[in-house]
Design a protein around this nucleic acid. Structure first.
Lengths: 114, 114
DNA sequence: CCCATATTTAAGTGATGACTTAAATATAGG
DNA sequence: CCTATATTTAAGTCATCACTTAAATATGGG
């Protein structure tokens, strides 16, 4: 599995860059599938605004939507969250590995000097 | 340590929502501290554009900057990356835990029916 | 078919973002 | 002090974003 390119992963982060959308995702994770009305209820914004947020999340692959009568239940899709996590993990790991190599190098230098 | 609010963490994600900035962070992680010129070299954009990206990263707490003569070396700060990871981890974990509870519930239901 | 409910689309607005070029600032070193 | 190098600030432009209200669409049930 190749590492996703910066361009792909930045799309995911863009979808995560709004507090309303983060709250929506967190609620879907904790409470399971929800209708648009349920999702919108706690927010101080119009229904279309929430619907637009859901569209962003869907296009980013962070949620999927079904059909249940007139309702379009939303479900969290964890795959892209995992991909974002993987990028962060890689980056942080590269940073730690560099520090370790640097430490080893300095320790070795000190050894030869003595 | 309280969970960061959606508002705080969304700022971090916003800083991560640009491919140029992701690339910068990845290079800082792998190659260590770099000057603005070094950072800018591979990009097809002006130096001020890169400088502005660095400002965004610094204000998001994702990098810090020193002073070395005329140069302002940039260094990755992994803390906010870790915080972002933690949010993703929590959300994904909540999702998994819900699925598990649901599975248990269904299994129990099946048991009592038999 | 008609009506209520759920959701989306359209169209417009104000704010923010990612650039640009030109000009300003900071520092090192003769 | 003067000049070269490194970096930032200023100011403007064009695109995108997060909303709004009004209108459209979809579905279920008399």
């Amino acid at each position: 599995m190749p590492l996703p390119r910066a361009n792909t992963i930045s799309r995911t982060f863009a979808a995560l860059s709004d507090p309303t959308r983060l709250t929506i995702l967190a609620r879907l994770a904790k409470q399971g599938d929800m209708t648009v009305q349920d999702i919108a209820r706690p927010f101080a914004m119009s229904l279309p605004a929430v619907s637009q947020h859901l569209k962003v999340l869907e296009q980013a692959g962070l949620i999927s939507r079904g059909r249940n009568g007139q309702q379009r239940p939303c479900r969290l899709r964890p795959e892209r969250l995992a991909a974002a996590q993987a990028w962060l993990d890689n980056t942080r790991h590269a940073w730690e590995a560099r520090l370790d190599r640097l430490e080893n190098f300095l320790a070795a230098k000190k050894d030869t000097r003595q």
